[in-house]
């Protein structure tokens, strides 16, 4: 039950994009159409779901003082986390290039940029700061990924609709997306502070 709580909390209440404003670059740039947003969302779920447990294992067994090396190496964690994330993203890139060349070309430069998507590194740092256990870190990773997926699908759907509205020319596209995201963020602020235990009947 605790795991479901963490999932719901990460996906809805503390949404990476709309509550913490992390991972904005790819969120705004790849949300022009629903298809590409869907592909990027799945890629982010995959990368977050994989890197989070790996980074948990690294901090617990390599970097902590009670780990295998017996030294406190936490100052190395940025470089190691980034290296794990970069290799995972490279893996995803190769998979997408092989199985869906159309998606690969439409994602363009924003696929390698998942590496520097702050939501992913931020997720790993949140996980360390909140002292999650291994199963909790898996749940948190998948939940954060799902939250990003939901947010990017939502903005892509709104942007596809708004294309037919009478928006002033210079504001069309990117400008409107920024303002919409700001409004969605203010909306999501009202979800902060909800007790996730209320959903699952625990607590």
């Amino acid at each position: 039950m605790e795991l479901i709580n963490i999932f719901i909390k990460a996906a809805f209440i503390e949404n990476m994009v709309l509550a913490y404003f992390l991972g904005m670059c790819s969120y705004l740039a790849v949300s022009k159409t629903l298809d590409t947003a869907f592909g990027l969302g799945l890629a982010v779920i995959f990368v977050l779901g994989i890197t989070m447990p790996i980074n948990w294992l690294i901090t617990t067994f390599l970097l902590s003082e009670s780990g295998l090396l017996g030294m406190d190496l936490t100052f190395l964690r940025f470089i190691l986390f980034i290296a794990v994330i970069a290799s995972m993203v490279q893996l995803v890139e190769m998979i997408i290039e092989k199985y869906s060349p159309a998606l690969y070309s439409s994602l363009g430069i924003f696929l390698p940029l998942i590496t520097v998507n702050c939501a992913i590194l931020g997720g790993s740092l949140f996980m360390i700061a909140r002292e999650y256990t291994f199963p909790e870190s898996v749940s948190f990773g998948l939940g954060s990924g799902f939250g990003f997926f939901l947010a990017i699908i939502a903005i892509a759907a709104i942007r596809e609709k708004i294309r037919y509205s009478n928006v002033p020319g210079p504001l069309r596209g990117l400008g409107m997306a920024f303002i919409l995201t700001g409004l969605m963020g203010i909306g999501f602020m009202s979800l902060m502070g909800i007790d996730p235990g209320a959903f699952t009947g625990t607590n």
């Binding site: 404003f21 022009k32 294309r163 002033p168 020319g169 210079p170 504001l171 069309r172 596209g173 990117l174 400008g175 409107m176 997306a177 920024f178 303002i179 995201t181 700001g182 409004l183 963020g185 203010i186 602020m189």
Partner: peptide, 27 residues
């Protein structure tokens, strides 16, 4: 709040594109 940065950048894009009309999103 972070949300206001989004509004400010949004308005900035509006002004920038109104001045430099080549950048307007036609799609």
């Amino acid at each position: 709040l972070s949300a206001s940065a989004l509004f400010v950048i949004g308005v900035l894009i509006w002004i920038h594109r109104a001045w430099n009309r080549d950048l307007i999103d036609v799609s």
